[in-house]
């Protein structure tokens, strides 16, 4: 079982989603996954793919080449980064001419893409490398009092040809990982729908309508929280929930948690340790329930 990874933070997490990084590092350490910092980093390339595919290929290949020098596989917290690095790794390994073209760019920085490492997202590492059983065994405070919903987001699953993880039409991994904490994971309509984040800035109206749909569906099944594994999905729901409530005259009050925050609670870590204070939508109601529920046992 590989338990040592180069951690690839991406840009969005250090920019504004530190609770995800804090909680992920804590639970991974507790599960015995060793994280090594990237010696040098640049954007994975995904944000610029719409305007220049070539730029994206070079940026992703440069990161892969840097990781290859370390001889370690990459673990990302952002599904966008994971998807991009996986896709470019596969494309360049299969297309020799393109690989040569991209390597001619990397040469300018003394680098070469060889295709010797793999990239996995946090969810995939937890499911495949750590394993559900080990995660269950790490739970000291089962969250049996909580009923939550999951949101996988798009890039952890699609396009299937490049990602090759779980079933994009009926994903189960995040559900299993949530239930490993003792919490109930509720089914709801259109679970695999996009959060809308990539359309922000181009059309906020379309983006917020998509987020509103999701929150409505989650509310319909009385979920006490929505669990995410992507910094962009998290921003979309957590940062915009109040805005959506005002704009569409809705009431949600649904806290949006990063999965490692949920797991961390079940492992006995405190909300302070897991940076719950960074969340915009107040989670004190469920935290109180967790504390009282645990006390009752």
């Amino acid at each position: 079982m590989p338990s040592k990874y180069l951690i690839f933070l991406g840009c969005a997490i250090p920019y504004r989603v530190s609770a995800y990084e804090i909680s992920a590092r804590k639970v991974l350490t507790k599960l015995g996954v060793e994280l090594v910092e990237m010696p040098e980093f640049n954007c994975c390339g995904l944000p610029l793919d719409p305007v220049s595919h070539e730029t994206m290929l070079i940026l992703a290949a440069k990161n892969l080449a840097l990781a290859e020098q370390q001889g370690l596989n990459i673990l990302t917290l952002c599904p966008g980064c994971a998807g991009t690095l996986k896709k470019v790794n596969k494309i360049l390994k299969e297309d020799k001419a393109l690989k040569e073209q991209i390597n001619s760019h990397l040469k300018e920085a003394g680098l070469e893409f060889k295709g010797t490492i793999e990239t996995k997202h946090l969810l995939q590492v937890l499911k495949e490398d750590v394993g559900i059983e080990k995660i269950k065994a790490s739970v000291v405070k089962p969250l049996t009092m909580l009923k939550v919903a999951e949101h996988n987001g798009c890039h952890i699953l699609r396009p299937k040809e490049y990602i090759g993880f779980d079933d994009p039409e009926d994903p189960q991994s995040l559900k299993m990982l949530i239930e490993a904490t003792g919490a109930t994971c509720l089914d709801y309509i259109d679970e695999t729908e996009c959060c809308g984040a990539p359309s922000v800035g181009v059309s906020d109206k379309v983006a917020l309508q998509l987020a509103r749909d999701k929150l409505n569906h989650v509310k319909m099944v009385d979920a006490q929280a929505l669990i995410t594994i992507c910094p962009f999905c998290h921003i979309m729901y957590d940062t915009n929930e109040l805005r959506i409530e005002k704009m569409f005259n809705e009431t949600y009050g649904i806290p949006i948690l990063h999965y490692p925050q949920l797991l961390g609670l079940a492992m006995g870590m405190t909300p302070e340790e897991l940076a719950f204070n960074e969340l915009r939508v107040n989670a004190s109601k469920i935290l109180k329930q967790v504390t009282e529920g645990v006390l009752k046992q």
């Binding site: 590092r25 910092e37 040098e40 980093f41 640049n42 220049s52 730029t55 440069k62």
Partner: peptide, 24 residues
């Protein structure tokens, strides 16, 4: 926050590798 320093974004190397890209 107990987090390690951010990895260095080597902008000089980024610019070098992106030389000749039309969009850039």
């Amino acid at each position: 926050q107990g987090l390690p320093p951010l990895p260095k974004g080597n902008a000089e190397n980024v610019r070098k590798t992106l030389k000749g890209v039309k969009f850039i």
